[in-house]
Amino acid sequence: MRLLVVEDNAELAELLAKGLQTAGYEVDVLSTVEEATSVLLTTFYAALILDLGLPDGDGLSLLREIRHRNNPIPVLVLTARGGLHDRVHGLRSGADDYLVKPFALEELIARLEAQLRRPGHLLGSSLRIANLEFDTRNRQASIDDQPQVLSARETEVLELLMRSKGRVVSKKQVEDHIFGHSGEVASNAIEVYVHRLRKQLAERGAKVQVHTIRGVGYLIAEES
């Protein structure tokens, strides 16, 4: 799978390329908006890793240009500014995710994988936490490589949580994911599904924990 890294700092670009190659990706590196714009016209990449501060322009303008052409390539933005404002601005311009410098390579790869497994994307793959695995292609959960039968709702909740590994999924996000924006949702419906999922996972020996953050949402993590 080929990725494009647009980063003007040669040293960082080289290290990122090396890290991503170690993780099994092929990587092209460019350093300007101009180069990236022309290369993206002719070459297909699985994802774009884009630095915002580039010598010949703002990375966000490249992003808008890409989206303007209806190019659905997943874009992960790297920024030196940690402000929420920058994040919102970046996401509105069409970025799929963002990371504030400095970031762990592991985090970058995890976020990248989450993007590559987005619904609609060609390349299915599996998500893993401890001995729990979720295959996004056939939406099958397995514990210690043993396929598990879960209800449709439980599967949906599990998939969402595993896609957001390491991050809290708000209750609202779970509601939207399961019920869409239509129809009334019973106030405790989500809690019931999460409770059932937690019970199922524990009974079947999964070494993961589904945390409830009161008033905030849910998070799946390795059992501590």
């Binding site: 700092n9 040293e11 960082l12 290290l15 990122l16 090396k18 890290g19 170690t22 501060g53 790297l78 030196a80 500014r81 940690g82 504030v100 410098k101 400095p102 970031f103 762990a104 390579l105 592991e106």
Partner: peptide, 21 residues
């Protein structure tokens, strides 16, 4: 502040990635 953020965080990023490798 924007420039300073860039100038300070990029070397940290390099350092961090180098350590990860």
């Amino acid at each position: 502040t924007a420039d300073a953020a860039h100038e300070l965080r990029t070397p940290l990023s390099i350092l961090r990635t180098r350590l990860d490798l």
